[in-house]
Design a protein around this nucleic acid. Sequence first.
RNA 1: GCCCCCGUAGCUCAGUGGAUAGAGCAGAGGACUUCUAAUCCUAAGGUCGCAGGUUCGAAUCCUGCCGGGGGUGCCA
Length: 567
Amino acid sequence: MLQDQIIELITQAARKAQKKGDLPKTALPPVTVNRPKHAEQGDWSCALPLQIIRDVNNALKERGAERSSPLQIADIIAKRLPETPLLARTEVAKPGFINMFLNPAWLAAQAGEICQSGADYFRLPLGQGKRVQVEFVSANPTGPLHFGGARNAAIGDTLARLLENNGYIVQREYYINDRGTQMNIFAETLWRRYQQLFGLSVDIPDDGYPGAYMIDYARQIQAAQGDSLLALSDEQAIPRFRELGLAAVTAELADDLAMMRVFFDNWFSEQSLYEDGTFEHINTLLREQDDLYMKDDAVWFRASRYLPKSDRDEVFIRSNGEPGYYASDIAYHYNKFITRGFDWVINVWAVDHQNQAARMPAMLKALHIDPERLTIVLYDFVTLHRGGQEIKISKRSGELITMREVLEEVGVDAARYLLLSHSNEARIDFDIELAVAQNNENPVYYVQYAHARVSSILRKAREQAIDWGEADLSLLQDETELALLHKMLQLPEVVAEAIERFSPHLLPHYALDLARTFTKFYDACRVLSNDPTDAALSRARLQLVQATQIALAYSLELMGMNAPESM
RNA sequence: GCCCCCGUAGCUCAGUGGAUAGAGCAGAGGACUUCUAAUCCUAAGGUCGCAGGUUCGAAUCCUGCCGGGGGUGCCA
């Protein structure tokens, strides 16, 4: 990408200056460049002289030479920049910046390159075929997804889209917690609801699931099985209802997530880890390594030996004989890394799992897996509002706002955009009224509108049988045209940073920025014209518009949003 | 008690070592014989929670404090 090319130019110039004796041969830090905020400071800027002045002066002093200044160093490096079609000119600025101005002709030519290559122009060979699993959502299968799960779905799916568009082979996985205490309570609640449908006077457990959706599941089972299960004893019924309930819930989860445009490649059963011997295997392994010990009737895992700063161990098998969730996690990650051999695994978890996240490296070390191969992406909660008024979500009262309800009201595009537009660590106050507003208060539609406009221009051009495949792009000289090109070239940088920092929120901000830059061009420059003397400029601008369509559509695709042809 | 995250314009948020801190919305003023006005332009709006420190340079890194949220050995 362009940024790397600029960095390379500076690096070469600095090395050459050292080789030629303009600069003493000090160790150079990795070169960084940035886009200045002010136009007079160029398109790209580098502060390397300020970073190396101390080392340079020390070396000069040793040699008995006169001190230098950052400005002088900037000048020396600028003079040694290799010949390049990228840059038109370079300036040095106080106190020691090297400011570079892109060559407008080169910039304009990129419109043609983008039209030629399509979205591939913006894709990066980051993954090089590395196999990465993104595990996300993974909410307990005890009911429909509540709206908090939508944020997880948006972040996880967008990370997956970012990765698969940039050279990774991605698998999307949903981990089903289909064993353990919660599942038993769920099964018992469902069994009671089923019995109630036949008029039996039984109560759901005190700590059960009071939501009305449980009655819906019971009705589904009633519809499929009739009264044939009524004769079962509690001991027979609960495993059976666990199985039937699980099927009903996962079918609903898949439906809801499909509505969110999220499709999992694999639904992984926690229970399967106990059926296929994985748990037994790691149990033996850890025991042989002396990682397990007994205390208070429970089996503990010596996590502390793997975490230097911690003296805390973890329950492996609870005193009631049931493996704890940590045991499942160890078996699960053994399966991910050893059995299935993923190069890299990303888990997307809500912030209430922060402690669990901190304990993951210990288990990986015990399994002889490099902890670097696992990334936990934590995100904060979503609170729902309607016109400034918070909507309380309480699972206990059974009063929950499902993801489906919100999606039906605000639409998938708006939901995904708004959920993505905050950094992972920030809590989101999601206002349904604002999200649903289809007006200028809502940036979602601004971005999509830009795409619709672009599409409209191209459609009209085709109707007029204009062929813009050949164009003199050097005619693109307007400030807004060059700004638009410059903004498009930023897309790969945004993508690379979003992956680097696991921060999909950079995308909606970029998309809004790109849409704005386009709309300013649209306002300033007429594309289509009846005047034949405008034909050449018109063709050049059509290439620019087509390039914009590619960039906008790709940005929207990464966020899982529609790119409408008209609105 | 200890650990993690957040605190930036009236509101919602970007900005995670660069120059004069940015968007959107709201509020003020202006622009439609339009390739889609769901638009554009102009002006206004700030002790970057507070106090120290590191650095040529700090909203950004370190320490302490204040305020909000979360977590804290057998639920996942």
